[in-house]
Design a protein around this nucleic acid. Structure first.
Length: 577
RNA sequence: GGCCCUGUGGCGCAAUGGAUAGCGCGCUAGACUUCGGAUCUAGCGGUUGUGGGUUCGAGUCCCACCAGGGUCGCCA
């Protein structure tokens, strides 16, 4: 519909430029649905863009354009110059009614497109190292990445969801040492560090207390789950691990157990990955050495202070970075670079990293270095998101990662449910701080809780169907509904809103901004709920059979679009509430 | 201090460079009397942090400044 109109405008504009003796290209004009319905179904800004070039007033050009339109197509019913030089057009025929037919016909695939043309996109997200439970930041990232991936799939991209984690370095060793320390404390052969010093990052603690050594590492993981892990090992092995044959058992067990817990959490919130990849494999496959060698070959590596440096300043960045530490151990930067090369070796057309703001600084180094190794820089994208804070009773809930006194994804989901969790996490623009208001999230009142507002709007379509069945009124066949009796302004507004859905899905995917979808769902629900609620003017089930049938068609259309929107968000679309 | 994100009605937020800046909560005033009802309608509320600039047109782009958050490690 819009495509045909667009062509009509292009053709008319070509004629207009011809008359003006201008051989130049058409301007990149916009043809979009204006905010206000008074401004027609579509508005075109071409006249304003041409004003300077043709040295004529924009309204004058717009008049000419309006005059030319009828010779170049038949989609325009009425056209009018407005404002500074917009051409507002009203479409011919029963355009919104046609649209509902399309919604009903396409059903679950309405809103989907094939513009991705099967391009392979890798979306890397969460990627939390297995050192503890998922935090709310991970939760936000998980939902964000998952919905972006789903949106891309809905637009014809071939998507791989991937989780990458570092399990080679110091952090994992620290994790193992933390578990070992707690284990020894449980055996009574080590003393825990003084409680009051744990929260203080500057504090030193004595090497022994009451004759027992303090082995808990200075930067160790302090969460209660570490002690649980130690207890588990003690239950299984008794005191046999005080001097274990396999010194890696603490680290290995911790990684396995924590990673299993993370996967369970992800499963609970409806996130599944196609591929898990990790740092260790990059080592064993020789990718780390290879990447370092290739960087060296490009003259981007030098030695200083017994460490190996990346000459990032040669790549336009503000400082150099260490690739291999004095200890001989690579920093995380080197494997990250190797990993991004690996992505392109695996033939992805686009790779998309979803990361929290705390990691943002890292990305430019990885991208520039990978680009120097012949990876296409513009095909490495970053979606950065800000943090999540939790509010309860108007007060921010204090969270401390260091002391592990933070609310986990598991806890929050147990508290508010998966659907509310996902909806709230994806409602805000990624770059905005997200304030998760527990009071709103836990409110069961659909008027107060936006997640329920959308779900309830969907459930109501079934409520009406149930009512119809009760009254002996049959639901119409999806393929043969005459919706022309729908003429009330609120009905046209609903039809228009339904028509916007494909564009929203498309834009949200291409801009990697899934919050548009959540907003759209709220908008549609915000039109639908009052329509249903205010039965005085337009009860769906009335005496007029044709009108009833048409309104039942609208019910089905709204249901379809709400269900599709909720589906893309990974949220259930209930029939009852 | 450098870099990044944010700043929009009382609160929480939205707005491919387009027309009169939208939505929810809250607030105010009316209406309905249980139907598919955990009601509806209307209204009040804004110099989009400040000051310049680009543009036919700026919440949006550029510059400076102010405020909040993040980040600047041979941590991940």
């Amino acid at each position: 519909m819009r495509e045909q109109l667009f062509e009509q405008f292009e053709s008319a504009l070509r004629a207009l430029l011809g008359e003006a003796g201008d051989p130049g290209a058409l301007p990149e004009f916009a043809l979009e649905a204006p905010r206000s319905p008074d401004h027609g179904d579509f508005a075109c800004n071409a006249a304003m863009l041409l004003a300077k070039r043709l040295r004529r007033p924009p309204r004058d050009i717009a008049e000419q354009l309006v005059a030319l339109l009828p010779e170049h197509g038949d989609r325009v019913h009425r056209a009018q110059v407005a404002g500074p030089g917009f051409v507002n057009v009203w479409l011919a025929g029963e355009r919104w009614h046609e649209l509902l037919g399309r919604v009903l016909e396409e059903g679950g695939s309405f809103g989907h497109s094939s513009i991705g043309e099967g391009q392979r996109v890798q979306v890397e997200f969460v990627s939390a190292n297995p050192t503890g439970p998922l935090t709310l930041g991970h939760g936000r990232q998980g939902v964000l990445g998952d919905v972006i991936a789903t949106l891309l799939e809905a637009n014809g991209f071939d998507v791989t969801r991937e989780y990458y984690f570092n399990n080679g370095g110091r952090q994992m060793r620290l994790l193992g040492d933390s578990v070992r320390a707690r284990y020894l404390e449980l055996l009574g052969s080590a003393a825990p560090p003084p409680e009051e010093l744990l929260g203080d990052s500057e504090a030193q603690w004595p090497e022994e207390i009451d004759g027992l050594p303090v082995v808990f590492p200075r930067d160790g993981y302090q969460g209660a789950y570490i002690t649980d892990l130690a207890q588990g090992l003690r239950d299984e092995y008794g005191d046999a691990l005080a001097d274990p044959e396999d010194p890696d058992i603490f680290k290995r067990t911790a990684e396995e157990v924590i990673f299993a817990a993370i996967r369970k959490t992800l499963d609970t919130v409806g996130i599944t990955f196609d591929v898990y990849s990790n740092e260790s494999d990059l080592y064993s496959e020789g990718r780390i050495e290879e990447t370092l060698g290739d960087l060296r070959g490009k003259g981007l590596v030098y030695d200083k202070d017994e460490a190996v440096w990346l000459k990032a300043t040669d790549l336009g960045l503000d400082r150099d970075r260490v690739l291999v530490k004095r200890t001989g151990e690579p920093t995380y930067l080197l494997p990250d670079i190797a990993y991004h090369r690996e992505k392109f070796r695996r033939k992805f057309d686009v790779v998309l990293d979803v990361q929290g703001a705390d990691h943002f600084e890292q990305f430019p180094f990885v991208r520039k270095a990978a680009a120097a190794l012949d990876c296409p820089e513009e095909r490495m994208e970053l979606v950065m998101h800000q943090f999540v804070t939790l509010t309860r009773g108007g007060e921010q809930v204090k969270q401390s990662t260091r002391r592990a006194t933070y609310v986990t994804v598991d806890e929050l989901v147990a508290d508010v449910g998966v659907d509310v969790f996902r909806f709230f996490m994806v409602r805000r623009r990624a770059e905005s701080h997200l304030d998760f208001d527990l009071d709103v999230a836990k409110d069961k009142d659909w008027k107060k809780n936006p997640a329920y507002r959308v779900q309830y709007a969907h459930a109501r379509t079934f409520g009406i169907e149930r009512k119809a069945t009760e009254k002996g009124v049959a639901m119409p066949e999806r393929t043969s509904i005459d919706v022309s009796p729908l003429t009330l302004p609120e009905e046209i507004e609903l039809l228009k809103k339904l028509s916007e859905f494909p564009e929203i899905v498309n834009q949200a995917a291409l801009t990697r901004e899934p919050h548009h979808l959540a907003y759209y769902a709220e908008d549609l629900a915000g039109l639908w709920n009052p329509y249903v609620q205010d039965g005085s003017n337009h009860r769906v089930l009335g005496d007029d059979e044709a009108l009833t049938n048409a309104r039942l068609g609208l019910v089905l259309g709204v249901r379809t679009v709400l269900a599709n929107a909720l589906g893309l968000l990974g949220i259930s679309a209930p029939e009852h509430m």
